[in-house]
Structures are given as structure tokens and as C-alpha cells.
């Protein structure tokens, strides 16, 4: 056994340094700058005094409070709904594909073909397909089911975020599903066979064998999807309405406002978005830890 099998302290630092440096400087630097600006530090207009004004203004002022709280509720709704629906769908589809005997490769390919499609393109596609004068509406009109664009239900650019949720579910289900397929394939099917021999039906096998085994990856994938959909900009900007408006869209609008005094609010909102996501993830992991200990 050579003494070089385990890197020494210095070697470790040298090996990790490039990645850590990029992380610290670019990400950490950006984060630090955002925090400073959110506290009111704006050299361009001569503002050097730090304060929490931007945060209190966002949360409580007459100008921003309504936009913030409605945006928060809306963002939580679309993230939670998209994550839940895509998770359930992903489990179903992954199990189905896992159990097909023939054509597994084809089904897998079809399932994941939209992974490289950018979210922006997915949003535009949804608009073309689902708007009141879109492809689907023209189809129903040709079939005589609707007569004018306004007969077709409002699915995109609606105040409930249905269009946004549909777009996210379309994009994120394959994401979670592919991860699940990988996990399912790595589980030895001897558990499954043994359980079947002992007389377990599908639901029992699912609940006691498959589910516990896929839960760790399922949880990580869902949390990633939640965090992403909560902080993403393109789909709510494209497929959503002006009010209620998802938080990231409001943040960008504040940032590009001609009034430079709105910039601390924009930064504060971005920091709040990051904090909220961290909070949700933290709570969820804590609950899971509790559940494990109770088991």
C-alpha cells in the first residue's frame, strides 16, 4: 500500500481549490453583493447607509406588500402543485416502464426526449398549444365543439397558474422519472420475487419494498424541482399574468425599474426567495428526520 493512496492535507486543498475558488468568488461574491445592495448600499446614487428598509418595505409597505404576499402565495402554489403532480406522475410512469417487457428502450427514450428542451421553449410551446386561439382550440373548433376563441377554456395566461403548472409538469416529470428509473434498475429484483412468492399483492409490494427504496432519491429530486420552480423566471413570465405574479418575475421587474431606488427591493426579494426555499427544504428534511426516528 503506497503512502500516496490518501492525499495529504495540502494536496487536498490544492485539488479542491479551483472548484472552491470559483464557488466562493462567483457565487459567494454575487451573493455578498446582493446582500449588500439589499441593505441599501448603492454607491451610484451615493447611498452608503445600511438598513433593513428594503425588507420592511417589501413585507409591509402599501406599495409592495400586496405584490409580495400575493406573489409568495402564488409561487408556493405553483411550486407545490408542480412538484406534487410531477412526482406522482413520475413514479407511475417509471414503474410502468420498469415493468414493460418489450420496447423498454423506446419507452424510455420517449419519456425523456423533452429533457433537453429549454424551459423557455416549453413555455412558448404551451402558449401555441393551449391558448384560446391556439392549436387545441382550433382543433375543437374544427370539430364543432367550440365556435369562438372565448368558448375555449382559459388554460394559459390565467390567474390560477394552470398553464404554468402544466408547463412545469411536462418538463419536470421526465426529470424525476429518469432518476427513479435508474434507482429502480439498481434494486435487485430478488426482493420483489421473494415478496411475490410469499403472497404479497402489488400494493403491499409497492408500499413496503419499492417505496422505501426509492424514497431517498424521490425526495432529493422533488426538492430540486421545488427549489427550481420556486425561483425560476421564464415560465411564469411567459405563461403567467400580471397579477398575481410569481416572485422571481417581480424581482426582475424591480431590478430593471428606471427608478434606482427600487433596486434594494429587487435584491431583498431575491434574498427572500433564497431564504424561503432554504426554509422549506430545512423544514421538510427535519420532518423526515423525525419520521425516521419514530420508525
Amino acid at each position: 500500500m503506497s503512502s500516496e493512496s490518501k492525499p495529504s492535507g495540502w494536496q487536498l486543498i490544492a485539488l479542491l481549490a479551483p472548484a472552491v475558488l470559483v464557488l466562493l468568488v462567483l457565487f459567494g461574491g454575487g451573493l455578498a453583493y446582493s446582500i449588500l445592495q439589499s441593505l441599501g448600499w448603492q454607491p451610484l446614487i451615493g447611498q452608503y447607509r445600511l438598513s433593513l428598509d428594503a425588507y420592511t418595505s417589501l413585507l409591509f409597505s402599501r406599495e409592495y406588500a400586496e405584490v409580495f404576499w400575493s406573489g409568495l402565495a402564488f409561487s408556493l402554489w405553483i411550486s407545490a402543485a408542480s412538484t406534487l403532480i410531477s412526482t406522482v406522475l413520475a413514479v407511475i410512469v417509471a414503474l410502468l416502464i420498469y415493468h414493460t417487457v418489450r420496447g423498454t428502450r423506446l419507452w424510455t427514450f420517449l419519456f425523456q426526449f423533452n429533457l433537453p428542451v429549454p424551459h423557455l421553449v416549453a413555455g412558448v410551446g404551451m402558449l401555441f398549444l393551449l391558448s384560446q386561439s391556439g392549436l387545441l382550440s382550433r382543433g375543437t373548433a374544427a370539430l364543432g365543439l367550440t365556435h369562438t376563441p372565448s368558448d375555449f377554456p382559459v388554460l394559459v395566461r390565467d390567474t390560477n397558474g394552470i398553464g404554468i403548472i402544466i408547463a412545469y409538469v411536462w418538463k419536470e416529470t421526465p426529470f424525476i422519472g429518469i432518476i427513479l428509473l435508474g434507482v429502480l434498475r439498481s434494486i435487485s429484483d430478488s426482493y420483489d420475487i421473494t415478496a411475490r412468492n410469499l403472497g404479497a399483492n402489488f400494493w403491499q409490494r409497492f408500499r413496503y419494498i419499492i417505496l422505501p427504496l426509492i424514497t431517498p432519491s424521490l425526495l432529493s429530486a422533488s426538492l430540486i424541482v421545488f427549489a427550481f420552480t420556486f425561483g425560476a423566471y421564464e415560465i411564469p413570465a411567459l405563461v403567467g399574468v400580471r397579477f398575481p405574479r410569481a416572485l422571481p418575475v417581480t424581482a426582475l421587474r424591480l431590478f430593471t425599474d428606471a427608478d434606482l431606488n427600487a433596486r434594494p427591493q429587487a435584491m431583498a426579494l431575491s434574498i427572500l426567495i433564497a431564504l424561503i426555499i432554504s426554509l422549506v427544504i430545512g423544514v421538510y428534511l427535519w420532518l423526515r428526520g423525525m419520521a425516521e426516528r419514530l420508525n
Partner: peptide, 22 residues
């Protein structure tokens, strides 16, 4: 249109609604 729940965001969107007959 849309009972005032939402409005087109710019000239192009309005032109699209106009062209589509909405």
C-alpha cells in the same frame, strides 16, 4: 377581453389577439 383579468403586455401581443380574431 378575459373580463379584464389580464391584458396584453405589448403591441405584438395585442396584434396577435387581433389577428387571431379574439
Amino acid at each position: 377581453w378575459r373580463s379584464g383579468e389580464t391584458y396584453p403586455a405589448n403591441e405584438n401581443e395585442l396584434a396577435q389577439l387581433f389577428a387571431n380574431g379574439e
